[in-house]
Design a protein around this nucleic acid. Sequence first.
DNA 1: GCAAGAAGTGAATCAGGATTCATACTTTCA
DNA 2: TGAAAGTATGAATCCTGATTCACTTCTTGC
Lengths: 208, 208
Amino acid sequence: MAYRHTPERQARDRAQREHVLQLALALVVEGGFASLTMQRLAKAADMATGSLYRHFAGKGELAAEVFCLASQREVEALQEVLATDGSALQRLRAGIERFARRAWDSRQLAWALIAEPVDPQVEEQRLRYREAYAELFAGVLREGEQHGEFRVSHPHLVAACMVGAISEVLVGPLSPQARAQRSEAQVEDDLQQVRSTLIHFCLGALAS
Amino acid sequence: MAYRHTPERQARDRAQREHVLQLALALVVEGGFASLTMQRLAKAADMATGSLYRHFAGKGELAAEVFCLASQREVEALQEVLATDGSALQRLRAGIERFARRAWDSRQLAWALIAEPVDPQVEEQRLRYREAYAELFAGVLREGEQHGEFRVSHPHLVAACMVGAISEVLVGPLSPQARAQRSEAQVEDDLQQVRSTLIHFCLGALAS
DNA sequence: GCAAGAAGTGAATCAGGATTCATACTTTCA
DNA sequence: TGAAAGTATGAATCCTGATTCACTTCTTGC
């Protein structure tokens, strides 16, 4: 009879897990999933590689959690703008702009979330979250339809189109190669063009 | 004074290389890039793994070539419909339909080309080809604009949006998981919905 | 037919990370 | 304080394929 799981220890454990997760996220923000290795993470957290396994069953689970952590924020940011007052069209517009803006402002992370080659467990989360973004847009599309703002026959598919269009138009400029070639000033210009194109393209079909 | 590179030998070499490439493509068509390994390919080609290296500098180069081989076909198919007579709008419509149809008809391959996690050398080609599809659409967009059919401020970006929308709306249903869950009949229905949604979505903005 | 030079072979090796585990250290509590 | 039980360590091991290379087998041109 010795050493029970005291509340303090449990709390410390949870805190440490959280801490590790944050550090892992920092690595991904910095260099994408490619730079998230167990050794590097352990070093960053100043612990032994083996200790990581007390908190996570394996690399895949860890990476998937990091992905979710980052994506959840994006979902929430999107949710926030989509839930404001205003017509469905206005809100969609604001949503698209927010999405693009956020991606543009943390390009390495956006690229990691949208397009970096990742292992299957992470890819699975990617699909889930793309679905989640689409569902948010779909919700607003349905509302707009109910209020007679426009007609959409398959909100869910239209929403997927939106997510695809947004991602694709961002991926080119976001990719590490592309980023290496353009100046900061050009990049800001690019965003403006991308933004207005996206708005026209995604919402144009609804107007008609 | 012995063993020169006779024309016959060179021809045989080229033929063998071509043959290996086709077998590699077959593996990818069958099970995606994940199932393209040097050992498996060697076995399929009935040769030693080492011999593959006489034709290809390494796995990456080989995989990239396979990707190009498959993608080139798609580009050509798209080019073909986009080059027919008719208004730009009609041709765009036909292009989108062809793209979706082809993807639907060889789902494993389409998924491998569009969304499967692949190594960097292949990812690079992926970007190039997405660019190529976009350029084809952009060409037609410019023609339509010249003929006064519609206005587009950034044909290249709009084209990227189209490619993104098409890919995304296909990726969901194309992914191995999704495919495992739906019947053949459902799948044909899905295609119809996807197709009409894509047409509306991609061309709707142009009409206005 | 034969020697020189290619091409083919495939088991062994390498590479790069994830994962394990014997060992050492901490915490708990009677 | 000390025994019991948990936690931390990190070098060693494993894993999965790609890649190599010493050796064998063909081709060619005389």
